[in-house]
């Protein structure tokens, strides 16, 4: 039995008998999915830059 069941348990994730799961964050999140962290950083930096121009330029 064992291995298959064990794998099933592990892939359930977060269940009491599950093994460690790498925390990737919410699957839809733009923060940590794929390249989106870099993209969000880009977006944030440009927002800051724009607000700098609007408020202090």
């Amino acid at each position: 039995m064992a291995i298959n069941d064990l794998n099933a348990e592990m892939s359930a994730g977060g269940e009491p008998k599950g093994g460690p799961k790498f925390d990737r964050g919410h699957p839809l999140s733009i923060f940590v999915r794929d390249r989106n962290e870099d993209l969000s950083a880009l977006l944030l930096a440009f927002l800051i830059a724009m607000s700098g121009i609007i408020f202090f330029g």
Partner: peptide
């Protein structure tokens, strides 16, 4: 826990802004 991970995001933002 979840908010602490945004540290990466803000560091990268800092580096991008440093370009100015």
């Amino acid at each position: 826990a979840n908010g602490v991970r945004t540290a990466r995001l803000f560091l990268k933002t800092g580096v991008i802004l440093l370009g100015t």
